[in-house]
Write a protein that binds this DNA or RNA. Structure first.
Lengths: 199, 199, 199, 199
DNA sequence: TGTTAAACGAGACGGTACGTCTAGTCTTCGG
DNA sequence: CCGAAGACTAGACGTACCGTCTCGTTTAACA
């Protein structure tokens, strides 16, 4: 059997070393400090090997996201059956995560990369927002089945809201007070409209 | 009377030219393409004149924000007295604004600058999120006074939510369907919890 | 019966293609533009096939010289019996050859290779200067036998002189006026010393 | 009065450092080992400062020649009035100079640069061959005036011959035996033609 | 009305990183 | 086991910016 390809095969070791070096440097010093030279040196690899497989440092970051070299431990909501507390607990866990300046810095570095490179943005969505969105939607649908959430609730919009609320604060370098989290959950579950029907 | 200062006075013309050039270039080519050399050349100014008054290109961007050279036409909610439709209309206007790729690109460029520089982040908050937050809070409080919004609503959290929902989409290069806007407003006003009290 | 050697035998075709490609590229673009990659590509050969048999591009050039892929049509003095006109004719032919910019460029490329690599220098001497030297020495010795050249003439030095005179001009990008050739021959045969013995 | 030029003036210190570094590195490691990076590092100068003023490393070498950073101590014939011994002594001195491997290596490096760059070739001629040629011509003309050299001697051709004889050997990595020098002088002054008139 | 001092346009400075190219080595497949 | 293909480390290439530092010029306030 033949592969139809000749020549030396791509070094998986080099690939790993590059992605690991990129993830490490990104977390340590941010996006602006990241350079292809430094990635190559840290990975013990020729610069050309980086450029052979990726078009730019952003593309390397995109693959880091895809392969879980950053943001690997995704924080997803638990499903205890109580949708309201599940969502609240998840939101608190996420806020805790971003309270660590290291994590917040990594997050901002990713946002910087994403705002300049469509591919990073897509991967970041696939890896972070997307799964969170899915998990939240499932969580809320479970709430509907359990009778905790009204069955005509705009579930995807709510999921977007929850993610956006956290993201906004992270990018704005604003520490998120836990009270905000409760407010968010309260507003979303109970609504802010006055219960005027009774009047 | 003396000013205590001698020598030539700062050129307001140069200052304006620099801020205008920065705003133009930022909108045209994004944050990564922006360079102090280009700013100076475009403004017809020596590079040192930029560095004399600002510490970095980020600082120039921050002042652009502060002085309204970018994001000058802030989109704020109208106040017709109907809080729910005011919020809905505002949100739709904002989504329309970000639907234009030019505006979305400028927004992402600002986010990139903000994620790397605390000062830009602060100015962006002051100029964009802050006023929006204030306006939304006022809008919702007016709703409370008008009996449209329950008086124990977590108003600041709701404002955060609304802003974050839009921001998330803008940074993720995701076009925001108008249906989402309605869902967001619906969820926030009516809540997603099942009306289980009556049972 | 076996030859004691196994596997595929060295491809004479590949060897020829490499030497031909080297000679062609050297003549076309000079030494600095020559690269092993280009040689291999032009020859339709893998780079390793070059390095398997030669240690560097200089070594390939050296073998090109040795095998007559460059400077194959060596210009040697005819032997008509008239040493003075033989030498003059040869010198004129050589000057004609180097008058063609292509030939001069090739010659300079070889000189560049020779000045950086001892092996090329040795081959260049073997191939070019050496045979010329020998031929000239023979020519002059024939002149001695014919009574045209004094029998105590420093024959090897004269041969060196003739070669060096041409070489100098070629390397210095100086077109050689034919008058110079006659002057050289005149000086060497008649000497420059005044015929003061008679006084 | 104005100079018509604005902006910071060229640093003479940087210029000197670059030329000195180039001369040093060229003498130490040859032309192929010379790189603009190394020149800049050795000179304590930014790479761009090299490229701002010279188009290539060859151009720097050309200016090194022009300004006497290499080949500054030109070996010229003394003029004692005895043309034959003056020429002989000069030739011996030159051969001595090139006997030192350092000097021979520098000379070959210059030849390599010259064979690839017309400007270097011109400067090398101006700085080395040209003055030697002039000095030799003067020396021989003095010999004519003193009655030592026949007055119809092809003086420029003889000068060329003397220079070329040395050059050829230097480039060919051939140590020049002192006997050769005497042979050269003998051939040039006495001629190699048999003194057939007396027979 | 000069003198002084700061800001100006211009542009060279020492550096860092870019993305490309080449050298010479190593590894795979196919003949 | 040879030869092609081509990936590998290493490092130079020439360019673009960084932030700093002169230059000579211009423009105030001070003397």
């Amino acid at each position: 059997m033949t592969t139809g390809r000749r020549g030396r095969v791509r070094s998986e070791e080099a690939r790993r070393a590059i992605l690991e070096a990129t993830a490490t440097l990104l977390a340590a010093s941010g996006y602006e400090q990241l350079s292809v030279d430094r990635i190559a040196t840290t990975a013990g690899v020729g610069k050309q090997t980086v450029y052979r497989w990726w078009s730019s440092k952003s593309a390397v970051i995109a693959e880091c996201l895809l392969d879980g070299y950053v943001l690997s431990d995704l924080i997803v909501p638990a499903k205890t059956g109580d949708a309201r507390s599940d969502v609240g607990n998840w939101l608190r866990a996420l806020v805790d995560f971003l309270d660590d300046p290291k994590n917040a810095a990594l997050f901002r570095a990713l946002a910087a990369a994403a705002s300049e490179n469509r591919e990073v943005s897509d991967r970041l969505y696939e890896r972070f927002s997307g799964p969170l969105h899915t998990a939240l939607v499932e969580c809320l649908r479970a709430g509907i089945r359990a009778g905790q959430v009204r069955d005509d609730a705009p579930v995807p919009a709510v999921a977007d809201i929850l993610i956006g609320a956290v993201l906004h604060r992270a990018l704005a370098h604003i520490a998120i007070p836990l009270g905000t989290v409760d407010g968010v959950v309260d507003a979303l579950f109970s609504g802010v409209a006055a219960a005027a029907r009774e009047d």
